[in-house]
Design a protein around this nucleic acid. Structure first.
Length: 272
DNA sequence: AACGACACCTGGAGGC
DNA sequence: TGCCTCCAGGTGTCGT
């Protein structure tokens, strides 16, 4: 599910509920791979009476800095979501891990497809996660010139580059298609053939699409919910994604779906 | 360097 | 209704 806007929304709505709260060290885990095979009691021992001091997002990771210098890092992958509820409430279908809070609540991670991951990072591990990812799309340092410079040295197709988290962090399949539609760029154009003028337009398209999605609480196609259980509404504004055989909003040509970079890809064959 | 294939998982949708 | 195949918002690995 989640790309930058969805992860941001999930992180914020989780943070609103638990920043300032203390974990109590209890963990109930029914799918060990979610915590990367670590023994739940070993993880729990690091969370006894530890306060959540804040929240932020990096790439598609939700980061919760803790008072003991560790950082809880969660990746939702396709279907992960957080739920905060009373400890006495019944387990939720597809719930994989539950972390107890000292105030009687639990932070629960629900994940149909079991791809999501939660880790506790030491400062060096956090640094490694940071450096493994590329520019945030709203980083002031990501000027049109810098962006064009990222595209210029590679012949890879532009969609693959947009999806590469080591180049730009946070874009996924939906917003790649949406941004390319806005910028009127064919998804299979080699990145080094994107002109500097097109790069400027594309960066603006990326930021515009993501900003709009952030305003709308992300996109909910099927599973995505924020940490209050609310859906996003950005799917109502899609111009290309999931609009196969529907008329292009710009020229009326039917939107085509193909496979590009191993991903379902929607574009207008006339104006892109 | 870059691409395809495949793995990891479940369940919903559509075809027959 | 039941069965089967395909598909999905992500990412990591492996072979070519």
């Amino acid at each position: 599910m989640p790309e930058l806007p969805e992860v941001e929304q999930a992180a914020r709505t989780l943070g609103e509920q638990i920043v300032g709260a203390h974990f109590d060290g209890t963990i109930r885990c029914s799918w060990l791979k979610t915590i990367e095979g670590h023994a739940p009691d070993v993880l729990g021992a690091q969370l006894v009476d530890v306060m959540v001091t804040g929240w932020r997002r990096r790439a598609k990771w939700i980061l919760l800095p803790l008072a003991n210098q560790l950082t809880m890092a969660a990746h939702l992958r396709m279907t992960g979501r957080f739920v905060v509820c009373g400890r006495d409430e019944a387990d939720i279908p597809q719930q994989r891990v539950a972390f107890g809070l000292r105030d009687g609540r639990e932070v629960r991670f629900v994940d149909q497809r079991k791809f999501g991951r939660i880790r506790l990072l030491t400062p060096p591990e956090l640094h490694q996660l940071e450096t493994a990812h590329g520019y945030e799309p709203f980083d002031d340092a990501l000027t049109p010139t810098v962006f064009a410079g990222l595209l210029q040295p590679t012949k890879r197709i532009i969609k693959a580059v947009l999806l590469d988290q080591t180049v730009l962090a946070g874009i996924g399949n939906i917003y790649a298609d949406e941004a390319l539609w806005r910028a009127q760029i064919h998804p299979q154009l080699p990145a080094n053939q994107v002109s500097s003028a097109q790069a400027t337009v594309l960066l603006d398209a990326i930021q515009t699409v993501l900003r709009q999605a952030l305003t709308n609480g992300g996109s909910t196609l099927r599973d995505y919910r924020d940490s209050y259980g609310a859906k996003g509404s950005q799917q109502d504004n899609f111009m290309a994604y999931d609009r196969t055989n529907q008329p292009c909003m710009r020229c009326g040509t039917l939107i085509v779906k193909t496979v590009v970079a191993q991903r379902g890809t929607h574009f207008c064959p006339q104006c892109q």
